[in-house]
Simulated scan of single mutants.
Amino acid sequence: MNELSIEVSIDDQRLEVLQDGRTIHTFPVSTAAKGVGCQYGSYRTPTGRFRIAEKIGDDAPTHTIFKGRAESGRWDGCPCDHDLVLTRILWLDGLEPSNQNTKDRYIYIHGTNHESKLGTPASWGCIRMAAEDIIQLSQLVEPGTLVTIHPPTQRTAKLIFFDCDSTLSTIEGIDELGRARGPEVFAKVEALTNAAMNGQIPIQEVFPKRMEIIRPDRVLCDAIADLYVKTITPGTESVIAKLKQAGWTPVILSGGFAPLILPLAKHLGIDHVEAVPLSFDDEGNYTGFDADYPTTRNGGKPEIIREWKDALLPERTIMVGDGISDLESRSETDLFVGYGGVVSREAVQAKADIWITHMGDLLERIEL
């Protein structure tokens, strides 16, 4: 019969080629750093049954760079942070209702410029392989070959979510955007922010009001992004470093804006940011925010935490924050840590499992 199939283990970060049900080749791989999932824009690896829809690059030299599945030069071997698609592409198509969007999500098995990370989850959703391995695999299989990606079963991750504004940084980014527009605008924005954080106004009502008042352009957003880095709360850098050393995955979970927060995350060594996207035109003028993003509404933070828990099956989950929207996530975490080092909110302190006023105290209050 001589029928080939592929099986991928998320737990073992391994791809096996089977012939009539017997393993004939095994390769290390790297699946998504954010775990498993089939949602558009999730940057997670889908699971279930698939087929290879297309093979691309069979005659391309090793380390050919593909952009939009077209050859676009060759990688010179120099380290870079970009997730390059190299050497070969095996484009997957989902065969189940839950993963039928896989081809439209552009989920591939492909060569990578991050071979040192193979054997650990590190991709943006695709399945990464070493150059020599993807060449060998591409020679073995054809379009139509069945692929099974097995979901994780082992609980190994430890997740800790941090609010950003008045938690990792002493500022409220939205207030600083308002301040830059003048005292009258700042007063209106600050009042709306405090009302939302104290639970007096639903967050989904506050968001569009504040943004229509401010309409921040890219230049202003870049300036506030720099301010975030300059106003990190005392002790935070050391805490994040020690958490990572102890095997925790830190995630910034914020109702703030992604372009403002990403430089802070990079400075702190945090790879994952869940925050509201902004859009600008070619001249850098503000054109809107993603009104459907979960953290623009009440209940959004626990929703995102549930997605992470489903994706990674963590051993433990902790949330650290100062506001009511952070407290909402208590139902989805093993521990909610209220932080009052910048702003002390009585409603949050009263219901927090642990209350701290200095970030350096966090490590003494949780079990690493």
Rank of each mutant, 00 (worst) to 15 (best):
V219W: 03
L313S: 08
V17L: 15
R181D: 05
G37W: 00
D353Q: 12
S331V: 10
I270T: 05
G235E: 04
S9F: 04
L4Q: 12
R88E: 05
R51C: 11
F27W: 14
A33E: 00
I213R: 06
I252V: 15
E7T: 12
P28W: 08
I134V: 15
L118Q: 08
R365V: 10
E190T: 10
A291H: 13
F50M: 01
P302H: 09
P97N: 01
L220Y: 05
N198W: 01
G284V: 10
V85M: 07
G77K: 00
S9E: 07
E115L: 01
D353V: 06
I10P: 06
S169L: 04
T153I: 05
G57W: 00
P234Y: 02
A196S: 15
I174F: 11
I318G: 00
A122K: 01
I135W: 15
L260K: 01
K34M: 13
E142M: 14
S42T: 07
L363I: 12
I240V: 15
P208H: 06
L327Y: 04
P263A: 03
P202I: 05
G321Q: 02
L327W: 01
F27T: 09
A195L: 12
E332S: 12
D222C: 08
V343T: 10
V85Y: 07
L159I: 04
N101H: 13
D290M: 13
G269M: 13
F257L: 02
N194F: 09
T87F: 06
A258H: 12
N198I: 05
R22F: 01
T87Y: 09
L227R: 14
S30Q: 05
V206W: 06
A131L: 02
I160C: 05
Q349T: 05
N113W: 03
A347Q: 01
D58T: 11
V85P: 00
D217K: 03
E212T: 14
F257S: 02
W75P: 02
N285H: 13
A352S: 14
Q204S: 14
P259W: 03
F50P: 03
G341W: 02
T296R: 08
R316S: 12
L262C: 08
S42L: 04
R105L: 06
Q139E: 11
H150K: 12
Q13I: 09
E16A: 10
H150V: 04
T236P: 15
P259Q: 01
L4N: 11
D292V: 09
N285M: 07
C38R: 00
V147M: 08
S72D: 15
I224D: 09
W248A: 08
R69Q: 13
A131Y: 06
G235C: 04
L90G: 09
G182Q: 06
G21K: 02
G73C: 07
H63D: 14
I366Q: 00
